[in-house]
Nucleic acid binder design. Structure first.
Lengths: 155, 155
DNA sequence: CGGTATCCTAATCGATACTG
DNA sequence: CAGTATCGATTAGGATACCG
């Protein structure tokens, strides 16, 4: 579990958010977390959900239970075949989505979210809730920043 | 709030995770969320935290309270000046980090996390906790997938 | 010290064409 | 139907040099 040290940003002062591994990690020596260590689980999760389609695919499958390739493609309007396939393969490889090929003609391939994949919804919901609660503040801050920047550029 | 419809993946069946806006959004008509709408708050958040340094900078500032530019640079070993500046500017613009220039010679610039920025820690912790709880399963799934792929390639 | 400016590479993403 | 393969555009990211 030592490799989990990274992402240590989330320990520290702060009021023991869930106090789950805070007991273990709190004030862990900063010396042994590599700022950008390979294989850091948190980084991998961030990279995965930071991409363009993962969250949408996961959400659609969470909602609909099972979808065929073409149905997904229609639902996620604008996704290219390449990106959809790539996203689905990555999710399948990570055990978040199950792919079932039905040996028929024409071929039928169904995708469904796994138990593991479903557990990812919770933290994603937390993120969505944050954005719903605070995005207006972000937008306001952004507008203020730009206003000031423009003013500075002018006068 | 209509523009928040996207990310609708997180409504749907599923056992009312926090049941916060589930009452409002649950089973919202799927017709009016654009799969990749511009300005979707959730997408913006995902894009921001999906980048390489945001979460690390935020974490360091959450932990240390205040840091000077160079101190951050040392802490986040491997970050280029360009990326550090870029990340800090983006965070400042979004109101997540405050930048204070002390008019001295030599210049001293301090960065600290804002109240708003601090609120982002909670969902990030949720994400980190997920990765700590489930990354072994992901790794296992991945190994299984690769093993099977290699076997298929062989025989 | 705390940045910009410039140039460059590598990765991401998408459009198109083709296939079992 | 459910993909691959290929190519080109865009973007993220980094190395280096210079500036107030």
């Amino acid at each position: 579990m030592e490799s989990f040290q990274r992402f240590g940003m989330l320990t520290g002062p702060g009021k023991a958010d869930e106090a789950e591994e805070n007991t273990v990690m709190a004030r862990a020596p900063r010396t042994d977390w590599d700022p950008y260590a390979d294989g850091c689980p948190s980084r991998e999760v961030l990279d995965r959900i930071g991409d363009k389609w993962t969250v949408l695919v996961l959400g659609e499958l969470a909602e609909s239970g099972t979808r065929r390739y073409t149905a997904l493609r229609r639902k996620l309007d604008g996704v290219s075949e390449k990106m959809l396939t790539q996203t689905l393969r990555a999710l399948e490889r990570d055990g978040l989505v199950r792919r079932t090929v039905h040996p028929e003609v024409p071929p039928r391939v169904e995708y469904e979210i796994t138990e593991l994949g479903a557990t990812l919804r919770e933290p994603l919901v937390a993120l969505k809730n944050w954005s719903m609660r605070h995005m207006d503040e972000v937008l306001e801050a952004r507008a203020a920043y730009d206003r000031e920047r423009d003013t500075a550029a002018q006068g």
